[in-house]
Simulated assay, not measured.
Amino acid sequence: MFGSRPPAAWQAGEVRVTVLGCSGSVVGPDSPASGYLLTAPGTEPLAIDFGGGVLGTLQRFADPGEVNVFLSHLHADHCLDLPGLFVWRRYHPNAPTGKALMYGPADTWSRMAAASSPHGAELDDFTDIFDVHSWSDGQTISYGALNVHVREMKHPTASFGMRFTDPSGAVLVYSADTGICDAIVELAQGADVFLCEASWTHSPKNPADLHLSGTEAGQIATAAGVGELLLTHIPPWTSREDVIAEAKAAFDGPVHAVVAGEGFDVRCTRSR
């Protein structure tokens, strides 16, 4: 259903997600914060989230001037490498003309304009390089050859999980940051690959509506009947081994905690 292998071995005709960064909440010693590159035939390359360090890793796999950007939410670890991308698109000698596409929560333009401001009292109006659109709960758009459906998750700020479907019926679902909720189970139904955050181990002391434990990620994968579970957004202070063990105890399918630089193919092998 999916397989990790070097980018050079990628075959045309496959949807592929490459992990640019997967460290939860902060940049880690071995990984940037959240960011994923989605590639598919007939579809422009897409960066899903753009946390600290993602721009550097992206340069290994794609021309940053050619990617569009989908933001799940606007916490710093998911978006604050974007000012660097603005510099790239404006000043790189071979930067493309025209605008790239950006989708995000309703306040994406104002928040990113403030983050990229050269002076505290100014906003960087980056609409010269990006055409910015807002997500809404339950929205479905076409992106190249892909169908993209979003649902709002449970998180302290507006956070949107994403479901990508290719013409063959292959489905990748990205949880974004979320606490356990009906929306994520519904979004992940029957996904071939479920890229799901798991920020901590399970405890009744965990704050509600913030993040998932390994146990909860596994429970969602089971309830949604997914094919493969990819765990991500594990902070440097959380035991990866414990999160993996929790997920495996709650889900009997394949489980893997991703690392930066890995790539995974998304193929339809399930009846819908």
Rank of each mutant, 00 (worst) to 15 (best):
P156Q: 09
V26S: 05
I180Q: 08
T232F: 04
P83E: 07
G263F: 03
S142Q: 13
S117R: 12
W135Q: 02
L55K: 08
V17C: 10
M102C: 14
A249R: 07
A100W: 04
T18G: 10
A208F: 13
E122S: 13
A114F: 04
W10G: 05
A145Y: 01
S116I: 03
V255M: 00
P41F: 06
D177G: 00
L187S: 05
F86M: 14
R16T: 13
G120F: 08
G214F: 02
H233W: 05
A221T: 02
A223D: 10
F194A: 04
Y174G: 11
G225C: 12
V132E: 02
S134C: 07
G214K: 06
E262T: 03
G104V: 13
L38G: 09
I141A: 08
H211S: 14
E197L: 10
L172H: 05
C196Q: 05
A8R: 14
S72Q: 13
S23H: 10
D177K: 01
Q59A: 15
T201W: 00
A247T: 03
M162Q: 14
S23K: 06
A183Q: 13
L172Y: 04
A47N: 01
F130L: 13
D252G: 04
T232Q: 06
L195Y: 15
D137A: 14
A145G: 11
E186V: 07
E44I: 01
I48N: 01
T269D: 10
V54T: 15
A106Y: 06
I129V: 15
D30N: 10
G53L: 05
P207N: 09
C196E: 04
D128A: 07
S199V: 03
P41Y: 09
S203R: 08
F264A: 00
L37F: 08
L82V: 15
D192L: 02
H78N: 13
E241D: 15
N94W: 14
G263Y: 02
C22F: 03
L210D: 11
W135Y: 04
S110V: 13
T178W: 08
F164T: 07
M162I: 12
K154T: 12
C268H: 14
T222M: 04
S134D: 10
A191Y: 08
V69A: 04
D137R: 10
S4K: 09
G190W: 05
G53T: 09
H155T: 01
E66D: 13
S136N: 08
